[in-house]
């Protein structure tokens, strides 16, 4: 039962964690909109989430030494590798941040984060209903 519960909730936890991590990356892009030679970064959310789910189900990493990286899946930065964004309008100073694109992605990500929260809350409500036997 508890394992099933974990599987139910775990997906949303992963999704929320990934959304928060993407939020941080997009924030760094916007913050560095005026930094020379800064390259905008992002990752394919759907692909990474799918990867994370299948990896955690099939191949749990064995951390035989505390120095091993990637043994702790909640630390996003060790296993999510952000890529560089394709630039449409390169600027002279080598910066590839397009503030409009980044802001659009930022808002999109924020709304999807809130959607994930609502799904998670619904899940909890359903579980509560099942527990109380209503």
């Amino acid at each position: 039962m508890l394992n099933g519960l974990n599987q139910e909730i775990g997906f949303f936890t992963d999704a929320l964690n990934l959304r928060a991590y993407r939020h941080q990356i997009l924030a760094a892009n916007i913050a560095n909109a005026d930094t020379p030679n800064y390259k905008a970064r992002d990752f394919d959310f759907a692909a990474v989430l799918r990867n994370a789910r299948s990896n955690m189900a099939n191949l749990p990493l064995a951390g035989t030494s505390p120095l091993h990286l990637g043994a702790n899946p909640s630390d996003m930065s060790t296993w999510v590798k952000p890529l560089y964004r394709q630039v449409l309008q390169p600027s002279l100073d080598g910066n590839t941040v397009d503030t409009d694109v980044e802001l659009a992605q930022f808002s999109d990500n924020a709304i999807r984060y809130q959607a994930d929260l609502i799904f998670l809350r619904n899940k909890f409500q359903k579980l509560q209903m099942a527990i109380q036997g209503q």
């Binding site: 939020h23 941080q24 924030a27």
Partner: peptide, 8 residues
């Protein structure tokens, strides 16, 4: 990660 947004 979200707290890092404040620092950034």
């Amino acid at each position: 990660s979200l707290f890092n947004v404040f620092d950034i």
